[in-house]
């Protein structure tokens, strides 16, 4: 396996494996948020705001994986 192939493989693995955790996290997070909204519709605004903050924080993890795969693809020579 030459270095180019290793890079491609690493990039694919980085993003593929890296989105698993955030995917589970986002699912749990949004599910709970929707449950809370269904239970207490009068708090929808607050819950949604906090949900977006949480989404931002969790999503950043997947994006780190994305950046790592970008670095592997385009920066590492």
């Amino acid at each position: 396996m030459d270095s180019h192939a290793a890079r491609l493989l690493g990039a694919g693995l980085a993003i593929g494996l890296g989105v698993i955790g955030p995917g589970i996290g986002l699912g749990t997070m949004i599910g709970s948020a929707l449950q809370s909204i269904a239970r207490q519709p009068e708090l929808t605004g607050d819950i949604r705001t906090n949900m977006f903050i949480g989404i931002g924080v969790i999503e950043a993890l997947a994006l780190y994986a994305f950046v790592i795969s970008l670095i592997l693809l385009f920066v590492v020579k």
Partner: peptide, 13 residues
């Protein structure tokens, strides 16, 4: 890092 990379990576992706 997370602020900048989140925005950058989202738009780029």
């Amino acid at each position: 890092v997370s602020l900048s990379v989140r925005l950058f990576a989202n738009m780029l992706a």
